[in-house]
């Protein structure tokens, strides 16, 4: 029983990390039509910067700030100077993001080499909590807390703020938004930057648990895309539900090989695509 609860908790915390990553991906995808294949790369950049700065300054929080800051700036630069030139050309934008993957991969390898790094859990959270028969690391619980808070924040942003309303409207109908006089490019820039900042945030927060290594980008991107498909384009609700689902699938198939995990996750994807192609919470007519 306690094994089961541990596993559920593992699935939940991984799912929430995944949610942070997938939320940005889903919004970008839904609003801009861009499949940002470099999204995992931003996650990885966040993880490495968070580790490097945290290690140098001895402070997890400073590392976190640096990781988020750097990825936000990178995201803004990417959108402003690269993606924007290809406005509307979806294939070209996807291809462009592939180029970014290669560049980031190379730069990180050059800066920090090929060995995996260990990100230290912040000292205050470096203990375990016992309830009932279960002992569970405090950091992971904190991670779940943070993830939940972020989910609520994103929900608040999307449902209760003007900007959020604009984004939602834009996901449904870009032309209307432009027709109403809103600068859609500014919205794109903000959403994309927010997405990459979230990815960086997730990268740093997840680093003590997932590790910091060179193929991290692919290892998180693949499940994140599954989440976006299952949950539906542009839907935060969908991203949350799908992330937890994928997190659970991963945890319960981890006993087998990593390849099997991906197969299981994508089997779910195919099933969802066959039954409801627009995703669990996606808008119809895709």
């Amino acid at each position: 029983m306690s094994m089961l609860i541990s596993s559920l908790l593992n699935g939940l915390h991984y799912g929430l990390i995944l949610f942070l990553l997938a939320a940005g991906l889903s919004l970008t995808f839904g609003l801009m039509g861009v499949i940002n294949l470099a999204h995992g790369s931003y996650f990885m950049v966040g993880a490495y910067i968070g580790w490097a700065v945290g290690d140098a300054t001895g402070s997890f929080l400073v590392g976190l700030a640096a990781g988020v800051g750097v990825t936000a700036v990178l995201g803004w630069l990417t959108e402003r100077f690269l993606l924007r030139r290809l406005h509307g050309e979806h294939l070209q934008q996807v291809l462009l993001t592939i180029g970014i993957v290669y560049i980031v991969m190379d730069l990180i390898k050059t800066a920090w080499g090929g060995t995996a790094r260990l990100m230290a859990t912040p000292a205050i959270l470096d203990s375990s909590v016992t309830f009932g028969s279960i002992t569970y690391p405090l950091y992971r619980l904190a991670l779940m807390g943070v993830g939940t808070v972020m989910a609520i924040f994103l929900w608040w942003f999307q449902e209760k703020t003007r900007l959020g309303a604009v984004v939602r409207a834009g996901v449904d109908d870009k032309q209307m938004v432009t027709a109403v006089g809103i600068n859609i490019y500014l919205v794109f820039a903000l959403v994309f930057t927010l997405g990459t900042a979230l990815a960086g945030f997730a990268g740093v927060m997840g680093a003590p648990v997932l590790g910091v290594y060179l193929t991290l980008d692919a290892d998180v991107l693949v499940p994140a895309i599954a989440v976006v498909i299952i949950g539906g384009l542009g839907s935060l609700k969908g991203a949350l539900a799908a992330s937890i689902l994928v997190g659970m699938v991963r945890t319960f198939t981890q006993a087998y090989s990593p390849g099997f995990t991906i197969m299981a996750i994508y089997a779910v994807v195919i099933v969802v695509l066959l039954i409801k192609p627009s995703g669990l919470f996606g808008a119809k007519g895709q």
Partner: peptide, 22 residues
């Protein structure tokens, strides 16, 4: 549709890859 074609081909690719791997 075109957009979904992109996504679904990625997904199918993952399944084949993971099958080959496992």
């Amino acid at each position: 549709t075109r957009l979904y074609f992109m996504i679904i081909t990625f997904a199918i690719g993952q399944i084949f890859w993971s099958f080959a791997y496992t």
